[in-house]
Design a protein around this nucleic acid. Structure first.
Length: 590
DNA sequence: TTATTAACTTAGAAGGATCGAA
DNA sequence: TTCGATCCTTCTAAGTTAATAA
């Protein structure tokens, strides 16, 4: 039986689409557990247990797991690996040595040359030293970690050179760990846990210019851990001689384990894998909200255009900010505590120094030049022609302000999101990113797919559509380390000119022409490949694929053009998007 | 109204695994 | 068959949002 028919026939009885999703997940679980692949045709209503919908805020009824896996204990260095201070060998206490190894392992990274990193590291390292060590080791520059560093390099080299059997043994051990700790039972489903291993101690590496880089991330102990599971489940046992900080039974949250991290004092969680029911349903819901925005986005756009003329400054700022969020897919931009994190901004937290106004630039009128660091300290640089009213408003917002003043001084994310909530239930700033990403993919696929193309050419079109979205969302990556070299390699493939090829021989005119033609084709292919790679140099496609693009658009496109879904989604992605792969037909419209 | 915090999604780097061209 | 390029997975930092406290 076709799943869509199956669901819609049940919908008649159950009436809400939310129920269909729950049923659908039960159905998938049933399918995945059934030993026979043809079970689908044998499904009957009676075989499916319909779970009633949970009341508002309830996430589960039963939750059982084995608790987290802790980082392996510290193994002291062999006696022959030395640390030198001021040119002299020095034997460190175990605690001080452990922290020293964190630094030694990063010696090749440019982090260890940064002043803030070194200062933070040294301060925290000293806290781990004995009083004698503290009085001796007073200057980081006099510390010589190179022998330790060489030792770790040799270790990792040795790991690479391990025999097949040894590697196999490690693999099996990992699988055993995964089998034992990597799954939980949530209600009637056995689910994969995302991060069941506790983060090991080490040196904090923030992104960009982070004031806390180099600080010591301390080792997490069972006494730091809060366990969340249901009362009637088998409660995980703490390691021998230890106890948990707390065991609670809160079914209004989805996490299994939590602890407080010591760098920012924020809470970290162990949660389920994206393939789980609880994550899948939330993901599906996210795209349904974006589809509701599609229905009213015209009205909302007209509204904010009207608001550009408002008498109230707050309303004007809100309307211009919303225009940026909609048109440029900017993030909301919460305020951040100064000195605690890198200085990055989003829409609402833009400062005057982040934009330049050009009444005219390169033949275009009213151009706004953006230049700021966004999430993860990724630079956003863009020159955008805007409507005259927006431009005039920006001039107004910037009047009598210093570069470091807020551009939208009457606005914050809370005000903006409250307004959005009034425009549409469930609407927040980030829904615009989801909506614009997904609608762009759908429209680009329509535009770029050539029915006569073969499969590789169609996939190229898909990647181009994906790239358009990644550019919109400013998803960047560091150019691959080998990029320049691999471009050179491509260059070296360029065939020599025909004259050289022939040397002194004199081939017939016909064969000359053929050869020239062949070389031209070869050149063209190389050129396309080069452009493609050049365009992709700094663009990351994965983030939008995983977080912004309604997977049903891609599934429908694959079905329509007979592209195997494996060409678009790898195994992990297919697991995450299982709901969409089975749900969407070729005529699916976002 | 503002500040704080909990819970959850989104993000790029790094390193390991796999692939394909020479 | 090797080695570099690319793909995939893991890791954990850094956002958003809504609820709660002050």
């Amino acid at each position: 039986m076709n799943i869509c028919f199956f669901i819609s026939s049940l919908n008649g009885i159950l009436s809400t689409s939310e129920s269909s999703c729950i049923i659908y997940h039960n159905y998938l679980t049933l399918l995945s557990r059934h030993p026979r692949p043809d079970v689908r045709s044998q499904l009957k209503f009676g075989m499916i247990l319909v779970e009633e919908r949970y009341p508002e805020g309830i996430k589960w009824k039963f939750l059982e797991h084995k608790g987290p896996v802790f980082a392996p204990p510290y193994e002291p260095l062999p006696e022959n690996v030395k640390f030198y201070y001021d040119g002299k060998v020095m034997k460190l206490s175990t605690k001080a040595e452990e922290v020293a190894t964190f630094f030694a392992k990063m010696l090749d990274h440019e982090y260890t040359t940064k002043e803030i990193f070194r200062k933070n590291f040294f301060k925290d390292w000293r806290k781990e030293m004995t009083s004698e060590e503290k009085s001796t080791i007073t200057n980081l520059s006099k510390c010589d970690f190179t022998h330790m560093s060489q030792y770790f390099k040799a270790q990792s080299e040795a790991r690479k050179q391990m025999s097949k059997e040894e590697k196999q043994k490690i693999k099996e051990e990992n699988e055993r760990l995964l089998k034992e700790y990597g799954y939980c039972v949530m209600d009637n489903h056995k689910e994969r846990i995302a991060n069941f291993k506790i983060e090991p101690p080490g040196l904090f590496r923030g992104r960009g210019n982070h004031p806390k880089m180099g600080m010591l991330k301390r080792r997490i102990m069972p006494e730091d851990i809060i366990i969340n599971c249901s009362k009637d489940s088998k409660i995980p046992a703490p390691p021998p001689g230890h106890k948990w900080k707390e065991v609670r039974h809160d079914n209004k949250v989805t996490w299994l384990v939590s602890w407080t991290e010591n760098i920012q004092g924020s809470i970290k969680y162990i949660m389920l894998n994206p393939s789980s029911r609880i994550k899948g349903e939330k993901d599906w819901q996210k795209y349904e909200t974006a589809r509701r925005l599609k229905k009213c986005v015209d009205k909302i756009r007209n509204q904010y255009r009207e608001d550009w003329k408002s008498k109230e400054m707050k309303v004007r700022q809100r309307a211009v900010a919303l225009y940026f969020i909609d048109k440029l897919a900017l993030r909301a931009g919460n305020e951040k505590e100064e000195g605690e994190t890198a200085d990055t901004v989003g829409c609402c937290s833009l400062r005057v120094e982040h934009i330049k106004l050009h009444p005219e630039l390169d033949g275009q009128e009213y151009v706004v030049e953006f230049d700021f660091l966004g999430k993860d300290s990724i630079r956003y640089y863009n020159k955008v022609p805007v409507e005259k009213r927006v431009f005039k408003n920006l001039q107004l917002f910037m009047e009598n302000k210093q570069p470091e003043d807020d551009l939208f001084d009457r606005l914050n994310t809370s005000i903006l999101n409250k307004h959005l909530q009034d425009l549409m239930e469930g609407l927040t700033a980030k829904v615009f990113r989801t909506y614009n990403a997904s609608i762009t993919l759908q429209q680009q696929l329509k535009e770029l797919t050539n029915p006569d193309d073969n499969i590789p050419a169609k996939i190229l079109s898909y990647n181009r559509a994906n790239r358009a979205v990644a550019i919109l969302c400013n998803h960047q990556r560091a150019p691959p380390k080998t990029f320049e070299k691999s471009m050179m390699n491509l260059q070296s493939k360029v065939p020599p000119p025909p004259a050289q090829l022939w040397g002194s021989r004199a081939p017939s005119a016909a064969s000359q022409e053929k050869a020239v033609q062949r070389i031209e084709e070869q050149l063209m292919k190389l050129e396309v490949q080069a452009t493609d790679r050049e365009e992709n140099k700094q663009i990351a496609l994965g983030t939008s694929k995983l977080n912004y693009l309604d997977p049903r658009i891609s599934v429908a496109w694959c079905k329509k053009w007979g592209i195997p879904i494996e060409k678009i989604y790898n195994k992990t992605q297919r697991e995450k998007f299982a709901w969409a792969i089975d749900m969407a037909e070729e005529d699916y419209e976002f």
